[in-house]
Write a protein that binds this DNA or RNA. Structure first.
Lengths: 150, 150
DNA sequence: CCTTGACATTCCAGCAACTGGAAGGTGTAG
DNA sequence: CTACACCTTCCAGTTGCTGGAATGTCAAGG
């Protein structure tokens, strides 16, 4: 099987497969006489696991650890379960942050609409609102401190 | 005012300020005789707007457009309002995606717990679940097709 | 025999938004 | 004199790919 076929089986671009090999996620496959990569069924399985884990938002680093376990004949199931747990928590935290952000955006929009829209430099404009952060009296836990970066 | 003080006023690392200058978000400030950057009050305002917009998850590209408007003496308020709207929608979409992902993770965890945890290669293990995607009979709208990437 | 097309290979560059670190200059205090 | 806190520039790395150039290989068609 050449790279393209593996690519189709696992729904992962060939380019990405080469990249995974480069970073050591997939083992370098044997080559055909012409230098083309030759893959087997087990490569499909491995790549599918990678793709599945990626869909679950696992980092390549995390996936690598799972695969390394398996390569050392240790069943990664327990680790994977823990990872699922951890990831679920991360996601839920992220959701909360985004919800907060959503609220902030809506509030800014609402307040901003009541301001003139042609105030280039002055203080009565959404822009000022954005640069100062939300005005105080909004909600208890709402406009606390949105964080920069992350 | 030197860069460190501007940094404190706007709660943006000095390093990031230089970076913003490099990509044209902030104008290159005049220099002191020793070559140090010298900032004024208006620089604080500008940087605060940038920081505020970043907190709202605007991209530097979007912020640049806003600032360019202002630099051409056009009030960016209306554009900003539209942007707030657009961003709120993006966020809400993202939240929905994450919620879906959260459900999938929880399902996998639940199902995975019922499986043996020492199955290195076999088919009765969370790992298999992950590589095949969710099994069919779970919920109606739940494990449809989690998407890869993005 | 030659060309076209679909494959394959390598390597280099770029995205976003920074962050870290090296190597060096400046200014003040003790 | 030296320590320390600043400042400067430049280069490299992060994450997970993706695009493109330049080149090679192979089968089918004219």
């Amino acid at each position: 099987m050449q790279i393209r076929e593996l690519s189709k089986h696992a729904a992962v671009p060939a380019k990405t497969i080469r990249y995974y090999e480069e970073i050591g996620l997939l083992p370098p496959p044997p080559r055909q006489p012409n230098g083309y990569r030759r893959y087997s069924e087990t490569d499909i399985e491995r790549l599918k696991l990678v793709a599945g884990a990626r869909r679950l938002d696992f980092s390549l680093e995390e996936i690598k650890e799972l695969l390394d376990l398996r390569d050392r004949r240790v069943a990664p199931c327990q680790v994977l379960l823990d990872l699922l747990d951890k990831k679920a928590e991360e996601i839920s935290t992220r959701i909360a942050e985004l919800r907060q952000l959503e609220r902030t955006l809506q509030e800014l929009h609402t307040i901003g609409k009541t301001f003139p829209i042609d105030d280039v430099e002055g203080k009565h404009c959404v822009c000022h609102l954005v640069s100062t952060g939300l005005p105080g009296p909004v909600a208890d836990d709402a406009g606390a401190q949105p964080r920069i970066g992350e």
